[in-house]
């Protein structure tokens, strides 16, 4: 079977073209769907096996990045989203999409899918938006279906609000234990594995996220969100230093994430 992916669009989502493209490259078929088509019932998530909320600047990031789009989902699509997640379908939010998932309470989330916000993405300590490349390391013990088998990848970060924080520090321990703090910034000069809790210096950690968290999953491992952009490294020639490396050209380091989700659906 060819899994069908709903790639959300509209209201300042910007990365829907490349997000749809990487799922197609990974063997799925992807539709870009305007949020209002889901709200009006014109389209339904039940026709899809994967949901992707791409990056962008929904509503200009005003009132907090992802907040207003998160509210449109939380208040306009609440039951549809809950059913989709409870049915065991993979969901990914990238950058602004991750911010949306966190603010609507789907990430780090809970077993009941209660849609209660427990974490947030604060303004980078630098105080501004930056586009720079970072190295991510993944927790091998994590239940996350998207990062299965991955060790490290190099990807660009492009955000102003990516500092992962919570108001209840004990939650950080709980999420770490359950493998939900799945993606962390690491220093590429350190030997694998090196992911740690002590905040790495800027700009190795571009935003001074707590425990260097770059991405988290929900307890089931099906819902995954991250600040960096794996879809922007879909081909080797999009890397930051590819002209300095002896490269056999082909798929980029971000692609395994999308292959994992497609494989998960196909195997299920």
């Amino acid at each position: 079977m060819t899994p069908k992916v709903a790639v959300l669009s509209g209201f300042g989502i910007n990365c829907e073209t490349e997000t749809a493209a990487v799922f197609e490259m990974a063997g799925a078929s992807a539709d870009r769907i305007h949020l209002n088509r889901l709200v009006s019932g014109d389209s339904s998530l039940s026709e899809y096996q994967i949901l992707a909320i791409p990056g962008g600047f929904s509503f200009g990031d005003h009132l907090g990045s992802g907040r207003l789009l998160g509210n449109r989902l939380r208040f306009g699509l609440r039951e549809q989203v809950r059913e989709f997640v409870k049915a065991g379908n993979p969901v990914i939010g990238i950058c602004n999409g991750f911010q949306v998932l966190v603010k609507m309470g789907l990430l780090p989330g809970d077993e009941e899918v209660s849609l209660t916000q427990t974490a947030s993405l604060a303004l980078n300590d630098s105080g501004h938006y930056e586009n720079r490349w970072a190295t991510l390391e993944f927790d091998p013990e994590s239940p996350c279906v998207w990062t299965n088998g991955l060790e490290r990848i190099r990807v660009p970060v492009r955000h102003g609000e990516g500092k992962f924080v919570t108001d209840d520090p004990s939650l950080m321990d709980r999420w770490a234990e359950s493998g939900q703090l799945v993606a962390r910034y690491v220093d590429p000069g350190d030997e694998y594995p090196s992911a740690g809790d002590e905040i790495l210096p800027y700009p190795t950690s571009p935003n001074q996220s707590w425990r260097n968290v770059a991405g988290v999953c929900d307890p089931s491992g099906l819902v995954f969100g991250l600040m960096p952009h794996p879809e922007a490294n879909h081909s080797t020639w999009l890397g930051a230093t590819w002209t300095r490396e002896e490269t056999t050209h082909g798929e980029g380091e971000g692609m395994p994430i999308f292959h994992n989700a497609v494989k998960h659906v196909v195997d299920a």
């Binding site: 990365c15 990487v22 501004h128 586009n131 952009h229 879809e231 922007a232 490294n233 999009l238 002209t243």
Partner: peptide, 14 residues
């Protein structure tokens, strides 16, 4: 740095 130069995932020489 504070311009997004990579959205659309097409940036070969940055």
């Amino acid at each position: 740095r504070s311009y997004d130069h990579e959205v659309i995932a097409q940036s070969v020489i940055k």
